[in-house]
Amino acid sequence: MSTTPPVSTTALLSAEALKVAFPGRRGAATARAVDGVDLDIRPGEIVALVGESGCGKTTLARSLLGLVPPTSGRVTFGGAPLDYTGRALKAYRKRVQLVLQDPSGSLNPRHTVYDAVAEGLRIHRYAGDERAAVSEALSRAGLRPPERFFLRFPHELSGGQRQRVVIAGALVLEPELIVADEPVASLDASVRGEILALLLRLRDELGLSALVVTHDLGLAWNIADRVAVMYLGRIVETGPVEQLLTAPQHPYTRALLSVLPEAQGEPVVLAGEPPDPSKVPSGCRFHVRCQVLASGEAERAGVAESCRTVDLPVLNGAGEAQVACHWAAARAGESGGGSADAPLT
């Protein structure tokens, strides 16, 4: 788990009331992929965005990168709204870089490691010493001595080395923030820890901020300062990593945590698949799969009807512990604000 505190309380990157909707084909309903999100990422902070496939986390990440313009709301960087003109986006993407899940798909098999890392410099017409910049980026990514890798092709590298090349390609432009989409999902378990340690070292040495998109709460525990749990287009729980993962409030977060090896008790098996983003349920958007509602606990707490009919507010992006759940709010009221029991030791 990350322990170094953020160097600033002022947000570097923010989403404000962000919504991204995609029109349905042939008259089908609009899919609300991101349906009202506030999220701040501070300088030197690693935020993990967690949720099942289809919950909207990749669309949110792409919108933060300027790849998908929002339907409403806005993205700000350094306090200024994101400008979607071509020149402004080019300058923005020098400061905010993307690291994709599959390094094999990210690297051109016909390009050497040197060319892969130097590509960003050439796109942005770097005026300095290209060879020195590529060498430094490879060294920072853990490929030493860097000259030994210059003329290698992706197929000559291991999976971990390819991911380090992708990270070096992002670092060469000296960004302030990276967005890493499932950065270790395609790697062997023995290599995952090395890449996560690398990201933490880059944060500590360079003050680099990161948004790590993942379905794995175990990964979040090992790398993040803060976690935002996303379900059906909205963040349903957020807070400091240790507080959220040891005392989760939302039934969805509890279900995700229940399948980790450290979890006590039986895993929570959620009914069905995540609902269609073009058919968001009324009330709490999780209620159709909620184990607390199904078990009668919400009924006993007097909130079952609210779960089915009363929408919940968008959580603010400031970073304190928050949850969008009628049942959790009722429990907190009964206990005078205390947290729910933790499923982990």
Rank of each mutant, 00 (worst) to 15 (best):
P5E: 01
P6C: 00
P6W: 00
S8K: 03
T9E: 14
T9R: 13
T10Y: 04
L13R: 06
S14K: 08
A17W: 14
R25Q: 14
A33V: 04
D35C: 06
G36Q: 05
V37G: 05
V37L: 07
I41E: 02
P43H: 01
L49V: 10
L49A: 10
G56P: 02
G56S: 01
K57I: 07
T58H: 05
T58Y: 02
L60M: 04
R62D: 13
L67W: 03
V68S: 13
P70V: 05
S72A: 15
V75D: 03
T76M: 05
G79C: 13
A88I: 07
K94M: 14
V96T: 13
P103F: 03
S106R: 07
N108R: 07
T112Q: 09
V117N: 11
E119D: 12
A127F: 04
G128H: 10
E136D: 15
S139I: 09
A141M: 07
G142D: 08
G142T: 08
E156A: 13
G169S: 14
A170K: 03
L173N: 13
L173G: 08
L177V: 03
V179M: 03
P183L: 07
L187A: 01
A189T: 14
R192K: 13
A197T: 14
L199W: 02
L200S: 15
D204M: 03
D204V: 05
L208C: 04
T214D: 09
D216Y: 02
L217A: 10
G218S: 12
L219Q: 10
A220P: 13
W221E: 14
N222M: 15
I223Q: 07
D225M: 00
V229T: 04
Y231M: 00
G233K: 08
G233E: 04
Q249G: 11
H250W: 01
Y252C: 06
T253A: 12
V259E: 08
V268W: 01
V280N: 02
P281D: 09
C284A: 08
L293V: 15
L293W: 11
A294M: 09
E297P: 15
A298Y: 11
R308M: 07
G319R: 10
E320G: 13
C325Y: 11
A329P: 04
R331Q: 14
E334D: 13
S335C: 12
S335R: 14
S339Q: 03
L344G: 11
